[in-house]
Design a protein around this nucleic acid. Structure first.
Lengths: 219, 219
DNA sequence: TTAAATAATTAAGCTTACTTAAATATTTAA
DNA sequence: TTAAATATTTAAGTAAGCTTAATTATTTAA
């Protein structure tokens, strides 16, 4: 499989796991930085390879083979992130950028070695689950979006689901990291903002951020 | 730079460092598993990019830019080998195979981090020197080929210069590794074979092997 | 409910890195 | 020293993964 194909199925997979599923040609094209025409071409090609289900003008879905391929790439991505984070102490954004390249040039053999070295971790440093070969990724039901958290409760940050440098820079300058404890002060439902207190500091987050921060209620 | 270009200049570099320099089109084509026609094409292209000096029908040489590129790729290769060897305990051949892919998708930033993690090593687990950015690789004059060693002396193995699985399998099953001590029993000059004693075992090596094993005389 | 906006598709073309086949140059050996 | 062998180059063509431009389908908003 080529890098283009791996990135295409990986993007479909990621888009199909969002709260608002969006696997339209134009969305994939935008995320992959290619034209709609190129995305349509690729869709037709991957359909003949039985990696995706494709009906003209309809959103794309992965076949079970395509799903398997996507999970294999994502597994390697998250194992690399974990490995580089542990050994070289890179930042959350740095590990993502490097893993984005390495994921396509990693043998199953090497991925297994890394997995073993790390002690078979279940999540990467962003809190993203690391797929286990031939197993569907399970949803952690104890975990909810910060935008859905209730005011007046304490939560632990469990996942920072992003690949944007700006977001990670914001997180690190506000001590927002996986494992830290926060107090949800107020949900401004009208303007979709959330006020939290972290280490005595009040922060107001808008939905762009509260929709990618996952938390678990404490006690 | 593409993978094809990086591998092309890397191969020229490696061929130009052999005892018998051979950077002819047909040799490069064979080593890169492409046709002579493709190698000629690439030679013409890289000449316009000022990476190589190319005159029709003549052996290829690297420009200083080409040399720099080759060393950068080789540096990443050997840093990866060292890193995977240390952390994951892979074999000499396994680290080579993985590094062969990873070398092309490693940022300078990541290479620097690995180099620092390893404590700025000067050689990789094969004993191959790790180039330092913007410095020419120095030849270790204390080191000679096993084929040039003198009978009746003790040597330390300092480099196993190969990428062949068969060679590394042979080495590991005969306890030949970088750092081990050997006794050179006899040089059969007529048939280009060398008899050595290692851990009380006599082994007869032919020139294919004694021309890629480097040693340093002890005391 | 239909016109306008948006999205998706098709068609034609480009670049990279190859291929095979044919032509030409260089090297080797009788 | 020249004929044969080998090496290199040139020419034409291919597949992947893109592009732009034009066309067609779908969605949205008046």
């Amino acid at each position: 499989m080529t890098v283009s194909i791996e990135n295409f199925v990986k993007t479909i997979y990621n888009q199909s796991r969002l709260a608002v599923v969006d696997t339209r040609i134009s969305t994939l094209a935008r995320l992959l930085n290619i034209t709609n025409a190129a995305a349509t071409d690729m869709a037709r090609k991957l359909a003949t390879k039985k990696l995706i289900n494709y009906t003209k003008y309809k959103p794309l879905t992965l076949t079970s083979t395509g799903n398997h391929l996507a999970l294999n790439v994502i597994r390697k991505h998250r194992l690399w992130e974990s490995f580089l984070y542990k050994t070289l102490n890179l930042s959350l954004h740095e590990i993502h950028k490097e893993a984005e390249n390495l994921e396509h040039f990693t043998s199953d053999f090497l991925a297994d070695k890394i997995e073993k070295y790390l002690g078979f971790p279940t999540t990467d440093p962003h809190g993203d689950p690391i797929p286990v070969l031939n197993k569907e990724v399970e949803i952690d039901h104890a975990q909810i979006l910060l935008s859905d958290a209730n005011a007046g409760f304490e939560y632990e940050i469990s996942r920072l689901f992003s690949s944007e440098k700006d977001f990670f820079d914001f997180c690190s300058s506000n001590q927002i990291s996986v494992g830290s404890t926060i107090w949800v002060e107020k949900q401004f439902n009208a303007n979709k903002m959330t006020e939290i207190i972290i280490n005595q500091n009040k922060i107001l987050l808008n939905e762009d951020f509260t929709n990618i921060i996952y938390v678990k209620q404490l006690n």
